[in-house]
Computed example of a mutant assay.
Amino acid sequence: MKLLSFIVLIFSCITAFSQQKTALHYKIYNTTSRKMVTADDVVNDMAGADVLFFGEEHTDSVAHSLELMIFTKLLNRYPAKVALSMEMFETDCQPVLNEYLRGLIRESNLIKDARAWPNYADYRPLVEQAKIYGTSIIAANAPSRYINMVTRLGLGSLNQLDAVGKAWLPPLPIDTATGKYYEKFAAVMGGHASMDGMQLYQSQNLWDAAMAWSIAQYLKSHAGYKIFQVNGGFHSEEKLGAVTQLKKYDPQVRILNIASVSGTDITNPDWEKYVNLGDYVILTYE
Rank of each mutant, 00 (worst) to 15 (best):
S5P: 00
F6W: 09
I7K: 12
I7L: 14
I10N: 00
F11H: 11
S18H: 08
A23C: 03
H25G: 01
H25L: 14
Y26D: 03
Y26V: 04
Y29A: 03
T31R: 07
T31D: 04
S33K: 12
R34H: 13
R34M: 13
M36I: 13
A39M: 06
D40S: 13
V43F: 07
D45I: 00
G48W: 00
D50T: 04
F53R: 01
F54A: 13
E56N: 08
E56C: 08
V62G: 07
V62F: 05
L66P: 04
L68I: 08
L68V: 13
F71Y: 15
K81H: 11
L84D: 03
M86W: 01
E90A: 10
V96C: 04
R102S: 14
R102P: 00
R106D: 12
L110F: 06
L110V: 07
A114C: 06
A114F: 02
A116H: 02
A116N: 02
Y120D: 10
Y123N: 01
P125F: 08
L126G: 05
E128M: 10
E128R: 12
Y133G: 01
I137Y: 04
I147H: 05
I147Y: 04
V150F: 09
R152Y: 01
L155R: 01
G156H: 05
S157V: 09
S157M: 05
L158M: 04
D162M: 04
A163F: 00
V164F: 00
D175C: 01
T176L: 05
T176K: 11
A177R: 03
Y182I: 07
Y182W: 15
A187D: 14
V188H: 10
V188C: 01
G191K: 11
H192D: 11
A193R: 02
M195I: 02
M195R: 14
Y201W: 06
D208L: 06
M211W: 08
S214C: 05
A216L: 06
Q217E: 15
L219A: 05
L219C: 07
G224N: 10
G224A: 11
Y225K: 12
K226P: 08
G232T: 06
G241P: 09
K248E: 12
D250V: 09
R254E: 12
N257P: 03
A259L: 10
T264K: 14
I266H: 04
T267E: 15
N268W: 01
N268E: 13
P269E: 08
K273S: 09
Y274C: 08
L277F: 02
D279V: 09
I282R: 02
Y285R: 13
